[in-house]
Design a protein around this nucleic acid. Structure first.
Lengths: 302, 302
DNA sequence: TTCAGGCATAAGCCCTCCTTATGGGCCGTG
DNA sequence: CACGGCCCATAAGGAGGGCTTATGCCTGAA
């Protein structure tokens, strides 16, 4: 589409030439401007000549020891300088601004039970980085959502993204000590059958029942009601409403202070895990690197 | 100097990519922006990808039927648009501004005796063009002075410039009728010897004396005092102070109304002429073309 | 289900733009 | 007054950026 091109070219200045012009106008020297721009004096001369032909008038007067702006050049220089300052500012803002806010997409339970307790140390380590949490159970698509990094659970084989395993998504029943006491304590898996089971339709219950040698049919009999997130079911369990099956690693605090107890060492594991995920192409972006290094160290150290 | 280059590149955005970004951000469409810029959709996609890598963050979210700006993109877009508006304005101003003022370097006599009487018709024909006269006898150097077009006298063979002959710089004696009357009229060349001669050192006098068969030695006897411009000597002649040797074409008005008379048809001609001169490279600049066409027509028509 | 619209990607080529090399003009200096 | 230095212009040549063409994928509409 040559006609379009020519139209375009005629109404917009050649940008590289303008960049050179700006520098030359500032230094009033081809040589110095070229040095600033990291090119040779000849290149600067070439670009200015190009621009002068485009504008249709000389922009500089070549005097013996120096150059000065022509009338046309004087008209152009201030606005051009201002425009470049704007561009530089916008660019820097986008760069640092992008570095200044980290958007983390995370699963609800991970956010409330792990991030909430650990994020403080990240913010201490990176005071200039603001973290914006985006809680969602969807599998985030980095091309479609404004997300820098995500916590996902699953098999870990997603294309186009870098993944780091945080911990296995194992699962084991948990309940409040008070509820356990109502039946004189939970000693063996079968004791659970005497208690309400939260979200009995969860595949995890089935797996765990099988592993524990309990009859799976019992699950089907129960009223099924899922709350959609481990954190909610754990809260229900803490409130004494039943037994939840959750990932132990996410409830260390509750286990430690006795709000929940884990009656059996037996944990189920379907091979799923919690993963840190981000686009491969962005692995070296500072804020992403910072978050990755922090979370991996934090997980390893706890 | 690779280190300079890399420094530079890291602190200034890639301009072509930014230009594309601006268009894409405006249209929220790669395809439309590419069309506006006169390139293919693939090229736009390529440039945006490049810029996103440079910025370190995606600038657009690719949604099914459209794209939207990311946070980083939103931060960048307004300033970038503004910067381009500035650049466009500056460029246009330089272009049209340059078209709006025509700087003419002219010889003093030509200015006062020809341009002053004719320029009006040029300004009527080109009301948007302001003419700035720069009177000087120096041979103007277009590279060093802010001059668009010049009137010169001389042989007409200057390198690098376009020349058009206006009229021959011939020369012939002129004097006021009153002065002629003091010796009973000037009938033949020898009569001049009885009158004061203005700037007898002028080479033109010598040439004309030879052509007229007068003794050249007479000239050397006279007190030499040059006024440096034909117009001044002509004024002296009009005032009756002596005989001047000037170019007839420049004094048509004075001859017509009788302030001056040209006693002899004999004119000298050393091959010099008055020329219109401008840089070859700028022959198609509108204002230069306009002035050239006007002055040639004016000269031819009078 | 098919079609159309829109973006991404790969391969390849052209042309821009930069470099090196050289020359000219002007200044200061010995 | 000649010489060297500074600065810009110009020519020739080469490398790589950036564009095009071609193709694929995805999604929403008919």
């Amino acid at each position: 589409m040559p006609e379009l091109k020519s139209r375009q070219v005629s109404q917009l200045p050649p940008l590289q030439a303008i960049r050179v012009f700006e520098a030359v106008a500032r230094h009033l020297s081809f040589t110095k401007a070229a040095a600033e721009l990291g090119m040779t004096q000849a290149a600067a001369s070439y670009q200015i000549k190009l621009l002068e032909e485009r504008v249709g008038a000389p922009l500089f007067l070549r005097r013996p020891r120096q150059i000065v702006l022509t009338e046309a050049g004087q008209r152009m220089a201030p606005a051009v300088s201002e425009a470049f300052a704007l561009l530089g500012g916008a660019y820097a803002a986008a760069r640092s601004g992008a570095d200044g806010v980290l958007c983390v997409s995370t699963l609800l339970t991970f956010a409330s039970n792990w991030l909430a307790q650990h994020l403080g140390s990240f913010q201490v380590a990176h005071p200039s980085l603001a973290v914006r949490l985006d809680t969602s159970n969807r599998l985030v698509d980095f091309a479609r959502e404004d997300i820098d990094i995500a916590i996902r659970s699953g098999g870990g084989n997603w294309p186009g993204v870098e993944v780091h395993k945080l911990f296995n998504a194992d699962f084991t029943p948990m309940l409040s000590p008070k509820l356990a006491a109502t039946i004189g304590g939970v000693k063996e898996p079968a004791d659970l059958l005497r208690l309400p089971i939260l979200d009995p339709g969860d595949i995890w219950w089935r797996d765990w029942f099988i592993a524990a040698g309990l009859p799976v049919e019992e699950l089907a009999k129960r009223p099924g009601s899922s709350m959609g997130a481990q954190a909610y079911e754990a809260n229900a369990a803490i409130a004494g409403q039943g037994v939840a099956i959750v990932t132990a690693a996410l409830f260390k605090a509750e286990l430690a202070d006795g709000r929940l107890i884990q009656p059996f060492d037996l944990v189920g594991d379907d091979g799923h895990a919690y993963w840190l995920v981000y686009p491969q192409a962005r692995r070296n972006v500072p804020k992403i690197r910072a978050f990755r290094e922090w979370i991996l160290a934090e997980i390893a150290g706890q």
